[in-house]
Design a protein around this nucleic acid. Structure first.
Length: 418
DNA sequence: TCTGGGGTCCTAGGACCC
DNA sequence: TCTGGGGTCCTAGGACCC
């Protein structure tokens, strides 16, 4: 059997750990640039704040109901996530960290799965302060479904066994992992409304409607494992760094700074994984919600020799940017993608390879080690800019309690200091 | 005024080969 | 009038996930 452990309203729960007076009060966490609500406490959900709602649309509602609003604090959430995972790992030898707040765990040799699940919940809550729910089923898709049901139960745990397929008869097709809005519509048109309908439908028809992926989902619902637990994450094939600007940007120089930053961050990511990039893409776009004239473009280039050199990637990115930049538009977003990544050992090599610049390599390594010791903002390339007026908004970020010595929480009485 | 970021997989269609 | 068959590789775009 497979368990899915999922942190409840994860980002909100992280904020609450350090602000216990927010328990049972409405709380939301916003996306980058303080754009949309991406995490909501149950109380906030009850107020009608939808997932992904633009903040400016719900601002009034929030003020009226004294909703606590936070900018996202990924340093804090990432660290809390690691703590939760380290506890879950004590209960299984095979686990997949599926996302920042979800892990699949294999529970094969275990008799009383509910008992173990309760133990996990208790320990995670006690040691980290994060409440989790656990769904258990014979496949990942069924574990996922069990988890959704578990969230609605006081116990926070639920098992779907193969013999209990009646449980899933009432689940709407949209509630199934892997079925989004489009597939739901298509399925409705042929009279498939519930998970049970989907289970009983002829496979060739399902394949025609939703391709190989939907057929796999169907098999998984039937209890046939098609999606395995991936303990060791595959190395990434592409990496993307992009951001919306805190305000619109018209100047090429400001765009260049932003693109330089994205290029450097993207390179950091692949260096961490030990990968090299064979291709680079730069894109820019105006604000699709605005009535101003729209323009968006992208350009891709392949490297004949793979690279993880931030300076080379940065300067190439800037060249690409200059070739797609058009004057007179208000840009809202820019991004850099590194494509066709290979790990170092997969590197094919080149017959006539350029002579490597050892000095450059040492320089980049030195920069990297300074960053590792003193933080990412301790050194940067001049092209990345200093003031960064285009940078994103994050007006309501809470302290990085667990990762920054200067922001460690002080001991108090646990009451709202305001 | 104000609308996130980062991924994966699959498919269709074009370009090209013999 | 009428224009093959079989294959690969690549890319863009769709759909989904968190």
């Amino acid at each position: 059997m497979i368990a899915l452990a999922d942190c409840n309203n994860f980002y909100v729960s992280c904020e609450r750990v350090f602000k216990p007076w927010l328990n049972e009060k409405p709380v939301i966490v916003l996306s980058n640039n303080d754009g949309c609500a991406i995490a909501r406490s149950n109380e906030a959900k009850r107020l009608g704040i939808k997932m992904g709602a633009p903040y400016y649309q719900v601002k009034e509602l929030c003020q009226k109901n004294r909703v606590s609003v936070f900018s996202s604090n990924y340093e804090l959430y990432g660290d809390m996530s690691k703590r939760v995972v380290s506890i879950l790992m004590r209960f299984t030898s095979e686990a997949e960290i599926y996302s920042i707040d979800e892990s699949f765990l294999r529970l094969d040799q275990i008799h009383d799965q509910i008992k173990i699940a309760q133990k996990m919940r208790k320990m995670v809550l006690k040691w980290t302060g994060i409440p989790i729910s656990i769904g258990i089923g014979p496949t990942k898709t069924l574990a996922k479904m069990a988890n959704r049901m578990a969230k609605k139960q006081d116990t926070g745990c639920l098992v779907i066994r193969e013999s209990e397929k009646s449980l899933i008869g009432s689940v709407k097709v949209r509630g199934v992992w892997g079925i989004g809005k489009m597939i739901e519509e298509k399925l409705k048109r042929i009279g498939i409304f519930t998970a049970l309908d989907l289970i009983n439908a002829p496979a060739p028809i399902i394949r025609k409607v939703g391709g190989a992926q939907l057929e796999r989902t169907q098999k998984e619902l039937q209890g046939l494992q098609c999606i395995s637990i991936e303990q060791i994450p595959e190395p990434k094939k592409n990496v993307c760094c992009s951001r919306s600007f805190g305000r619109t940007v018209t100047d090429l120089e400001e765009l260049e700074e932003a693109v330089a930053n994205h290029a450097v961050r993207a390179t950091q990511k692949i260096r961490k994984e030990g990968s090299l990039t064979y291709g680079l893409q730069v894109f820019i776009m105006t604000n699709r919600f605005s009535k101003d004239p729209q323009y968006s473009n992208l350009k891709t280039i392949g490297f004949d020799e793979p690279s993880d050199d931030p300076i080379r990637i940065l300067s190439t990115a800037k060249e690409l940017l200059r070739s797609i930049y058009r004057k007179g538009y208000s840009y809202k977003k820019a991004g850099v993608l590194l494509l066709n990544l290979r790990t170092r050992d997969q590197d094919q090599g080149l017959l006539f390879r350029d002579h490597h610049d050892e000095k450059r390599k040492r320089f980049v390594k030195a920069l990297e080690s300074i960053k590792n010791t003193y933080g990412t903002s301790s050194t940067f390339l001049a092209a990345q800019g200093i003031d960064r007026p285009w940078d994103m908004k994050r007006h309501r970020r809470s302290p990085r309690y667990t990762t920054n010595w200067n922001e460690i929480p002080a001991i108090g009485n646990g009451l709202d200091p305001s």
